[in-house]
Amino acid sequence: PDDEWKERLREAEEKNNWKLFEELARKAGVSEEKIEEWKRRWS
């Protein structure tokens, strides 16, 4: 299951679909801290 969400995150990233990325990350149990960090790195 871990690989599956990583794959989906990669797809979201490729499409630059931040909303989807964020949603998937939350569902995968990624901390808000980590998500914010990704946001900063991404923008």
Score class of each variant (00 low, 15 high):
residue 1 P to C: 14
residue 1 P to Y: 13
residue 2 D to R: 08
residue 2 D to G: 10
residue 2 D to A: 09
residue 2 D to F: 11
residue 2 D to L: 11
residue 2 D to P: 12
residue 2 D to H: 10
residue 3 D to N: 10
residue 3 D to G: 07
residue 4 E to H: 07
residue 4 E to M: 10
residue 4 E to R: 07
residue 5 W to M: 05
residue 5 W to T: 03
residue 5 W to P: 01
residue 5 W to Y: 05
residue 5 W to N: 03
residue 6 K to W: 15
residue 6 K to F: 15
residue 6 K to C: 15
residue 6 K to P: 09
residue 7 E to F: 04
residue 7 E to M: 07
residue 7 E to Q: 11
residue 8 R to F: 15
residue 8 R to A: 15
residue 8 R to W: 15
residue 8 R to E: 11
residue 9 L to K: 01
residue 9 L to V: 03
residue 9 L to P: 03
residue 9 L to H: 03
residue 10 R to G: 07
residue 10 R to Y: 10
residue 10 R to S: 07
residue 10 R to M: 10
residue 11 E to K: 03
residue 11 E to G: 02
residue 11 E to M: 03
residue 11 E to A: 06
residue 11 E to I: 03
residue 12 A to M: 08
residue 12 A to P: 01
residue 12 A to D: 02
residue 12 A to L: 11
residue 13 E to D: 05
residue 13 E to C: 15
residue 13 E to S: 14
residue 14 E to R: 12
residue 14 E to C: 12
residue 14 E to K: 11
residue 14 E to Q: 10
residue 14 E to Y: 13
residue 14 E to G: 07
residue 14 E to V: 08
residue 15 K to C: 15
residue 15 K to L: 13
residue 16 N to S: 07
residue 16 N to Q: 13
residue 16 N to I: 05
residue 16 N to E: 07
residue 16 N to F: 06
residue 16 N to C: 07
residue 17 N to P: 01
residue 17 N to Y: 04
residue 17 N to W: 05
residue 17 N to S: 07
residue 17 N to G: 05
residue 17 N to D: 14
residue 18 W to A: 01
residue 18 W to V: 03
residue 18 W to Y: 04
residue 18 W to G: 01
residue 18 W to K: 01
residue 19 K to R: 11
residue 19 K to M: 12
residue 19 K to A: 14
residue 19 K to E: 13
residue 20 L to A: 11
residue 20 L to Q: 11
residue 20 L to W: 15
residue 20 L to I: 07
residue 20 L to V: 09
residue 20 L to Y: 08
residue 20 L to F: 08
residue 20 L to R: 06
residue 20 L to E: 14
residue 20 L to D: 11
residue 21 F to W: 10
residue 21 F to H: 01
residue 21 F to S: 00
residue 21 F to Q: 01
residue 22 E to H: 05
residue 22 E to S: 04
residue 22 E to K: 03
residue 23 E to C: 09
residue 23 E to D: 10
residue 23 E to W: 12
residue 23 E to K: 04
residue 24 L to P: 01
residue 24 L to G: 02
residue 24 L to R: 03
residue 24 L to V: 11
residue 24 L to T: 09
residue 24 L to K: 02
residue 25 A to N: 00
residue 25 A to R: 00
residue 25 A to I: 06
residue 25 A to D: 00
residue 25 A to Y: 03
residue 25 A to K: 00
residue 25 A to C: 10
residue 25 A to T: 00
residue 25 A to L: 14
residue 25 A to H: 01
residue 26 R to A: 03
residue 26 R to F: 03
residue 27 K to E: 13
residue 27 K to I: 12
residue 27 K to Y: 10
residue 27 K to C: 07
residue 27 K to V: 08
residue 27 K to S: 12
residue 27 K to T: 08
residue 28 A to M: 12
residue 28 A to N: 08
residue 28 A to T: 02
residue 28 A to K: 04
residue 29 G to K: 02
residue 29 G to Y: 01
residue 29 G to L: 02
residue 30 V to S: 01
residue 30 V to T: 02
residue 30 V to G: 00
residue 30 V to E: 02
residue 30 V to P: 00
residue 31 S to R: 04
residue 31 S to K: 04
residue 31 S to D: 07
residue 32 E to L: 07
residue 32 E to D: 12
residue 32 E to S: 06
residue 32 E to Q: 10
residue 32 E to K: 08
residue 33 E to C: 06
residue 33 E to L: 07
residue 33 E to R: 05
residue 33 E to K: 07
residue 34 K to S: 08
residue 34 K to L: 15
residue 34 K to P: 00
residue 34 K to C: 12
residue 34 K to Q: 15
residue 34 K to R: 10
residue 34 K to G: 03
residue 35 I to M: 04
residue 35 I to W: 03
residue 35 I to P: 00
residue 35 I to F: 02
residue 35 I to D: 00
residue 36 E to T: 06
residue 36 E to F: 06
residue 36 E to N: 09
residue 36 E to S: 08
residue 37 E to N: 03
residue 37 E to T: 02
residue 37 E to L: 04
residue 37 E to F: 04
residue 37 E to R: 02
residue 37 E to H: 03
residue 37 E to S: 05
residue 37 E to V: 03
residue 38 W to G: 00
residue 38 W to E: 06
residue 38 W to S: 03
residue 38 W to L: 10
residue 38 W to T: 05
residue 38 W to Q: 03
residue 38 W to A: 11
residue 38 W to D: 01
residue 39 K to W: 07
residue 39 K to P: 00
residue 39 K to G: 04
residue 40 R to Y: 09
residue 40 R to E: 12
residue 40 R to D: 12
residue 40 R to W: 09
residue 41 R to L: 15
residue 41 R to M: 14
residue 41 R to N: 14
residue 41 R to V: 12
residue 42 W to M: 05
residue 42 W to T: 03
residue 42 W to K: 04
residue 42 W to E: 02
residue 42 W to C: 11
residue 43 S to F: 14
residue 43 S to M: 13
